[in-house]
Write a protein that binds this DNA or RNA. Structure first.
Lengths: 210, 210
DNA sequence: GTCTATACGATGATAGAC
DNA sequence: GTCTATCATCGTATAGAC
């Protein structure tokens, strides 16, 4: 059967993480996988098709991980805390977030979608956990759950970015700690008016132009 | 004198913002600036030299803006709030942060430096404002000022990233609002032990390998 | 200082043998 | 399915005229 297909996909996943999409050349994929040109263009239509398959696989893996993390049975906010405190290599970067700023990703909705889907899921899981916590009286029910979700994810991804800029793992760790603190602060404080929930739908529930 | 030099630099600055470093080809710069090959390689040693000059100019401009913002005379934390609430185009992206995740930037310290310098300055200004606030009794003096600075900047840059992933300006705005809330929450609450200042130096004060 | 013409490797894809 | 040529194009830089 297709033995080289897996090798190509695996190499592409690694190279996407390390070099990004634009800098992932077919030649590098071939070298890393041990396959020849023929295998690549037999199993995939070209570079973009390979990258898309690899991205969808990475996105699926990471979504599984998120579901596993959030489908626990403890305190709702404990699951969020677990997400925030996951082990991360700040300098290596967020496996999907790392690609998010590339021009090719912004301009190609097919490539952007698996990345957006992952983040939409994380945001949704945090939103739901915050709502669950509110129903159980563990957090202020006036809190805008979507606002909280977006803010926490932004802290994590921003921490990755700063760690890379400074080539230093510390900012990632500090940002994650800051996110944890914010969550705990929110769980116990009065919420300012502008932070309160409105009837507007969640903004990042689904991505436009997808 | 050098009339085309400015045109080349200006075009490079725009293209770096829009396309990033890897996707900024000399050909595109020439087209956007109206200059020919000769001008480019007369004024600059090559693509990297041009990009470096452009990046340093952008970094200097943005550092001036930050100094202007933080050298005000109001409440120390008011300056930080002003930074957090600056107008931003989330989908277009952070002018310097946008480049931070590229492989070429990570692996070339010369290119990384102007970006890192900008973020180091922002972090330093926030740190100092938090310390000033502590001295004036406006914020808990046990707070780790560096932790706060890194966390707030991470929220802003993470907001940019999410806006780009979702092609939607809303996450950027929500992250900035969340950052504002966190700052205000910190100014009034008890600080958990792990958030407290230690004698360790600020981690991102200067970048390693620079 | 600026231009056009040219060189040359890398990128991304194709052709055809096995 | 996989391999080794081969190819057109682009990205980057140089040469030399004006």
């Amino acid at each position: 059967m297709s033995s080289k297909r897996e090798a190509l996909l695996s190499a592409a996943k690694d190279l996407l993480w390390e070099h990004g999409y634009e800098a992932m050349s077919p030649a590098k994929v071939l070298e890393a996988s041990g396959a020849g040109q023929g295998s690549l263009y037999h199993h995939f239509k070209g570079k973009k098709d390979l990258a898309l398959a690899a991205l969808e696989q990475v996105s699926a893996e990471m979504q599984s991980e998120i579901r596993r993390l959030f489908d626990g049975t403890g305190r709702p906010l404990a699951r969020v805390e677990e997400y925030l405190l996951s082990k991360r290599d700040g300098v290596k970067g967020s496996r999907l977030g790392r690609l998010a700023l590339e021009y090719s990703i912004l301009t190609d909705d097919e490539l952007r979608q698996p990345i957006a889907n992952y983040f939409s899921l994380v945001e949704e899981k945090i939103r739901n956990a915050v709502r669950d916590a509110a129903q159980l009286g563990l957090i202020n029910p006036d809190l805008d759950a979507d606002q909280v979700a977006v803010t926490l994810v932004a802290m994590i991804e921003g921490g990755f970015l700063l760690s890379r800029v400074h080539k230093n793992p510390a900012p990632m760790e500090r940002a994650a700690q800051g996110a944890l603190f914010m969550l705990r602060a929110l769980a116990t404080r009065d919420i300012p008016n502008w932070m309160k929930r409105t009837d507007a739908p969640a903004v990042t529930r689904r991505t436009p132009n997808a």
